[in-house]
Design a protein around this nucleic acid. Sequence first.
DNA 1: TTTTGTTGATTGACGAGTCAATTAAAACCC
DNA 2: GGGTTTTAATTGACTCGTCAATCAACAAAA
Lengths: 190, 190
Amino acid sequence: MPRIGMEPQRREALVRATIAEIAASGARDITVARIAKRAGMSPALAHHYFGSKEQMLLAAMRRILSDFGREARRAMAGAETPRARLQAIVETSFGPANFDPEVVAAWLNFYVQAHRDPEARRLLHIYHARLRSNLVHALRPLSTDPEGLAEGIGALIDGLYMRQALRRRALATETSVALVNDYIERGLRQ
Amino acid sequence: MPRIGMEPQRREALVRATIAEIAASGARDITVARIAKRAGMSPALAHHYFGSKEQMLLAAMRRILSDFGREARRAMAGAETPRARLQAIVETSFGPANFDPEVVAAWLNFYVQAHRDPEARRLLHIYHARLRSNLVHALRPLSTDPEGLAEGIGALIDGLYMRQALRRRALATETSVALVNDYIERGLRQ
DNA sequence: TTTTGTTGATTGACGAGTCAATTAAAACCC
DNA sequence: GGGTTTTAATTGACTCGTCAATCAACAAAA
């Protein structure tokens, strides 16, 4: 029973279902059929809207990145001092939205996909570059080696992410934030 | 033209080929046929020796982990002081054997595989636990918070790994080692 | 002649993507 | 407003390809 104006809702449902499915089955054995089923429609309809499985995966990544970007911009907006800006970045990285197990799993798979797929890699580089640029900008007035420190902070955040994704008994979010904050404090004080 | 005593060589070739293939195509679209071709034999022979593709992937993972373990044990053997033991761990993690792009890519994929496959997860946990235990042991006489510091060091190493795997212009190994060493120094001094 | 190595051919399953056909809303026309 | 046509939504059935795994058969060494 076709209602009109379904496209946005269908796309939304498919993007969500793709992320959920990545988290549930892992990117290796994802199928369009399973995604479509989870989104409550036929596989044919999924193809109708996205054209290919590849496009669905990319749409899921774009969603993850744009959610993160929005969150980050919002957090940075209120930060006046460089130190507050740093804090905003860290807290966004470990914010609940980002640390939802589903999203963490999607990120992990995203990393792997970026290893082969040029479009995915491009997307990831944009995110990396923005994060680095934000960090360096905030660090410049505070540190003698903003680039090095930014590199370390980024890597530490990524590493803590992975552990979150892989452990059955994950670290508490506060522990991760505390570790990054310690790292920053020590880096600045030096 | 069957020669005798081929089994070990065939297995060896298949394990190597599996790792190479993971790095080349990504775990998503690996096929037994491609692995076998790279190892210079028929797909049927690969199945003959390993039984299933799953087993090939696990064998490759075990190889990576046992190579790392051997390397780590060797490096630790000569270390007398706790500080030297720390240094040995860091240098092993970023040793040339581990930082071969092929091996880094394989690690990345193993992380993802561990997210679903219980056996892979089990293997990864053993590695994590050993690394953490070694770090904590070396840190105990040096730090007031060995567990926290070990967590941070492990995460930082993992994060730097990922970046190595994903950037086209990767960090120099020395840069990574220096970042970890700075982190340790600051953590101890505190 | 038994054991080990080896492969070509085959099977059986599954999955991405296509297509024709159906339904109902919307738009157009008198 | 009633009728007709267009357009969006939707799916079942199908195609085509691929791939893991099996098997029967053959070759050579022991």
